[in-house]
Simulated assay, not measured.
Amino acid sequence: MSKIIGIDNMTVEELNQELANGAKFVVFLYCISIVILTFKRSSEIYLVKSGENTFMKGLKFNLISFFLGWWGIPWGIIYTIQCLFTNLSGGRDITPQVMAALRQE
């Protein structure tokens, strides 16, 4: 499993309490294009606590997509818009998948 940013030094009880309070695990999308090749990728997993703003966490990935994503024809423009929309909406919530993986470990 990928590194989860934001859970450093948290106990299982603290993590469960955060999740019960509305925290979620999210990834941010970014895209990079090189003329005819376009790559759409996900960031590391972030723990976003309840009430925490995701704008600053996703800013780096929005900037990457905005400046490097739209160059590819035709997918660069499409993927860039998708990435920006997803990130500005708070990222992609993958809490159920992370919890299922953590239970298996």
Rank of each mutant, 00 (worst) to 15 (best):
I78F: 08
N53M: 05
I32C: 10
I73R: 02
I64W: 11
V27A: 07
N62K: 05
T80P: 04
S89Q: 00
N53G: 09
I4C: 01
E13R: 12
T80Q: 11
E18V: 09
M10H: 03
Q17I: 05
L19R: 13
T86A: 14
T86V: 09
L63F: 12
S50Y: 09
K60W: 09
L88C: 02
I45A: 03
L15A: 04
E44R: 10
F61R: 08
E18L: 12
E52T: 10
L15D: 08
I7V: 07
T54N: 00
M56E: 12
E18C: 12
Y30N: 08
F28T: 01
L29F: 13
L63K: 09
T38K: 07
L59R: 13
F85E: 04
R92I: 11
S65R: 01
L47N: 14
N21S: 04
Y30C: 14
C31K: 04
M99S: 13
T38Y: 05
D93W: 05
E44C: 00
N87I: 00
V35Y: 11
F39N: 15
A100N: 09
T86H: 07
E105M: 15
Q104D: 14
Y30I: 07
W75N: 03
W75Y: 10
L84E: 06
T11Y: 03
I7Y: 04
Q97Y: 15
Y46E: 01
M1T: 08
I5N: 04
N62L: 01
F28I: 06
I73A: 02
R41E: 09
N62Y: 03
T95C: 13
Q97F: 14
N87Y: 06
K3A: 11
I34P: 06
Q17E: 12
L19H: 13
S65G: 01
T80F: 07
F55L: 10
A20K: 08
I94F: 06
R103K: 15
